[in-house]
Design a binder for these strands. Structure first.
Lengths: 226, 226
DNA sequence: CCGTAAGCTGGTGGAATCACCAATCTACTC
DNA sequence: GAGTAGATTGGTGATTCCACCAGCTTACGG
């Protein structure tokens, strides 16, 4: 037998290095060489672990999506309105340096999706999945098919927009939007049993309920999703 | 006297060429040479009319912003709630090929804003301006300063998100979000005199009222704002 | 201590990019 | 028709990036 494989660890390290580079310098200057330098390895090693640039980029897309899915995960039997609020929370939970980095990486990947058919396909699939999932959730709440589709589209737009907003403006900005987004859900009837108040007076960074038990923002947090 | 200056026309032609290139191939492959080729001129000409790449990019940002501002323009004395609905309309009005192209260009510019301090400054300034404008509008409607900021942040996030959504998914998708966004405004009390119904049954592409007199989507339309 | 499998290095070729500029062309005025 | 300001061309040199790979290093088992 030979040396034990470190392939998965290396792939993960390089993926996280790509995230940091993307967040710092944007998509145009995120070269393979820059990623290797960020990770402290030789440029050729990137090609040893990833087929090409697209492979590296799509791996990061899946990593970021994994975090989002883990953050909005709800145990079976969770009522639909709770699922909606958790989804919004997961999107707006990108606070601090870690969250800001992820948001900036997302925005860079949106742009890359426009030019690269491969990356575009992966990103588009994720957006469509969210749209369909949310549509089904709204239907479970009694909305008609058309209403469900429209509301789901609006929620998806909010999620995407929150990431752009958070990427462009200082960290606290995105927190301002959070209570308002929950207000929208309530306006559509996605309220839970206890009475939420309109425009949660607890402030922009506080949540309207102790509901979100875990909002993972990245790999630094010690949790199951990172 | 010498030859009359065509500077402004050429700058505009090249700016629109950049928009097309950005929408088609994304930010990474939008080279100066590609823009010149798209406009049917020699590469060197771009440097004759623009100081550098950033100059070209920021000019496009201002052009796209000009369209948005023109589309949401309201005559003096327009009631605040009307202003809000027009703002959302202007953002979601990016339909058809022209709108899709603009949306994709916006997304590419968001990403460029992450890497280029110059472009980043211009884009950030526009987003802040919208946030402040919308905050003031909500305050005119009686919201507290905090509530106004939160609601404005949510609306800005929606606008940004609608562009990303429209850029990634086929044209009709963004239309699905429009009625829902108006519903949110109504939920916050931005309803006008006549009774809007919840989740406008006229369909995702129709507006809830004959209110928007003009929704310009680009230079092809014959209107004052293009 | 040797064989083996995998990790890792650092350099190279080919292609693309940008900033720059000298020369040429065009349209207008005097 | 001559003069002139500006538009336009097309090529160049320095730089950068990606894909690739031959060879070296490391860590394990026997």
């Amino acid at each position: 037998m030979g040396r034990p494989s470190l392939r998965e660890e290396r792939r993960r390290e390089l993926t996280l290095a790509l995230e940091r580079v993307l967040a710092r310098v944007g998509v145009a200057d995120a070269s393979i060489a820059a990623v290797a330098d960020e990770a402290g390895v030789a440029p050729g090693l990137v090609h040893h672990h990833f087929k090409n640039r697209d492979d590296l980029l799509t791996t990061l897309v899946r990593e970021l999506d994994r975090r989002f899915v883990a953050a909005r995960a709800a145990p079976p039997g969770t009522p639909p309105h709770e699922v909606l609020h958790r989804t919004v929370d997961a999107a707006v939970a990108l606070r601090g340096d870690v969250g800001r980095r992820a948001a900036r990486a997302w925005v860079a990947l949106y742009a890359e999706a426009l030019g690269s058919p491969h990356v575009g396909g992966v990103v588009r699939a994720l957006v469509l999945r969210e749209w369909r999932t949310l549509t089904a959730t709204w239907e479970r709440l009694g909305a008609s098919r058309d209403d469900a589709q429209r509301r789901a589209a609006a929620v998806v737009a909010m999620i995407l927009g929150s990431l752009v907003f958070g990427a462009l403006l200082p960290g606290t900005a995105v927190g301002f939007a959070a209570p308002s987004l929950h207000t929208l859900l309530r306006a559509w009837g996605a309220a839970d049993a206890d009475d939420r108040v309109a425009d949660d007076p607890a402030g922009p960074t506080a949540h309207s309920t102790p509901r979100p038990p875990h909002l993972c923002a990245g790999p630094e947090a010690s949790c199951r999703c990172c």
